[in-house]
Design a protein around this nucleic acid. Sequence first.
DNA 1: TGTACATCAGTGAACGCGCGTTCACTGATGTAC
DNA 2: TGTACATCAGTGAACGCGCGTTCACTGATGTAC
Lengths: 235, 235
Amino acid sequence: MNRRERLRESTLEEIKTIAGQQMAEQGTAAISLNAIARQMGMTTPALYRYFSSRDELITALIVDAYNAQASALETADASFSLPDDYAGRLLSVLLVYRRWALENPVAFSLIYGSPIPGYHAPAERTAPAARRNFAVILGILNAAYQAGVLRPTERYFQLPPALLDRPDAQQLLSDGLPVPVLYLGLVGWSRIHGLIMLELFHHLDTLVGDLKTFYKGEVLELLAANGLVPPDRNS
Amino acid sequence: MNRRERLRESTLEEIKTIAGQQMAEQGTAAISLNAIARQMGMTTPALYRYFSSRDELITALIVDAYNAQASALETADASFSLPDDYAGRLLSVLLVYRRWALENPVAFSLIYGSPIPGYHAPAERTAPAARRNFAVILGILNAAYQAGVLRPTERYFQLPPALLDRPDAQQLLSDGLPVPVLYLGLVGWSRIHGLIMLELFHHLDTLVGDLKTFYKGEVLELLAANGLVPPDRNS
DNA sequence: TGTACATCAGTGAACGCGCGTTCACTGATGTAC
DNA sequence: TGTACATCAGTGAACGCGCGTTCACTGATGTAC
C-alpha cells in the first residue's frame, strides 16, 4: 500500500468520522458536504474525490453503521465464555444490541429511524449488511433449538403460512432455518426494537427510571416463555 | 365569529394541511416556510401572521398529531359495541393505533421518529397531548382490571420499585392506577410500537407478508397471557 | 345610515446565509525506463 | 540513480438555488359614534 493509498484511506475514514460527529449534533438529515469540508480544513469539491455525491456518502455511512452493529453483536457472542448457555448468550447479545444503540444513537437512527428526506437507499448495497445483524440473533436461537434447549411455545408452530412468504424469509427457511425459530426471532427483534426506539427518542423518560432493567425483564420473559432459562439466575 | 376570524381560522388550517402534504413528500425535516407559502400562493412573510417562527409551526403540527391520534383511539373505543368485552376493546383500539400510524406515516414519525434537526420540542406544550394517547390504553386496561377480568401475570406485580420512579408514572399511580396495570401498559405499548416502527420504515418488507396478522397475533398473545380473551375468537 | 378611525392580513424588497455540484487549474506523489 | 511522464488530491472561482426573518408599506375588513 502506497503512501498515497494510505493517505487516501485515512482521509476517507476522517470524512465519515466527521460526518458522524456532525450528525450527532444536528441530526441525520443535516449531513452537509460543505460543513464536513469546512471542519476538515478542505474545500468542498475535494470531497468529490472520495464520494461522487452526497447520496453516495450517506449510503456508505449506512452500510458502515449496519456493519458496526453486526460486529458488536458478533464480538459479544464470540467472547461469551459458555457456548452452551444459550439463554446467557442471547441475553448478552441483546444487551449489547441496546447498548450499541444508546452509545451510537446517530448510527442507529440512520439505520432504523425516519428516512433522510430526498435520499433513497439502494437496497442492493444496504441489504446484505442489514441481514448480518438479524443473522446473529437467528444463529443463536437456531443453535439453541437444534440443541433441544429452546422449546418454542405452541403459537410459533401455528402461524399462517402467508406470514413468511417474502424473499428474505423464504431464503432463510430454504437454508434450513425452522419456521418457529424464524417466527420467534421476528417477535423478539420487534419487542426489543420497540423498547429501544421509545427509550432513544425520550418517550419513556418521564415514565420509567431504570430502563436497562425494564429491557432485561422483557428479554428474559420471552426467553423463559420458550424454555430458555440461564443456568445462574443471578447474572 | 367574524368573517375575518373565520378566514384566519381556515388559513391557519390550510397552512398546517399543506405543511403535512409537503412532509409526506419530503420528510418531516423538510418543513419549509417558503415552500408552504409558495404552494398557497402567498408570500413567506405572511405566514408570520400565523406562526411567530418555523419552530412554532412545528410545535403546532406535533400537538395536532398527538391529538389526532388520541381522538382516533378514543373514537374507536367509544364506538365499540360491547363495553364489557375488554379484550375486544383493546384489540380494536390497538388495531386503530397501527392503522392510524400507517395512514398518517408523517404525523406518526413527527411524533415518534427521529427528532427534527435544530428543533427542540417545548415539553410543556407537547406533553399533555402525548399523555392523552397512553391514557386511552391505560383506561381500558384499568377498567378490565377493576372488573376482575384482567389478571396480570405474576411478573407484573414483582417489579423493582425503581422502575416507575418518574414524575408521570408517579402521577398515574397516585391517581389510583395499580402498579401491575401501568407496568403491563408500558410493556404492551413498547411491543406494538416496535412492530409499527419496523413496518413503517420498511424493515420487515422482505420478511413478513401479512403484517396485520403478525401484529394482531402479538396483541392477542399479550392479552391472553394476562387472562384477557375475547368472547368470540373468530373476530 | 354614514363617516372616521383602528385593525390586521398580506405584499415586495432586502438581509445574510448555506447548500450541492461543475470546472479548469496547480503541484506533490508515484512509475517507467 | 536520474529523468520524463502520468496520476490524482486538493484549490478557488463560479453556477443557481433555497432558506428564515425583518421591515416599511397597502388596502380591505371591522368598530365606534
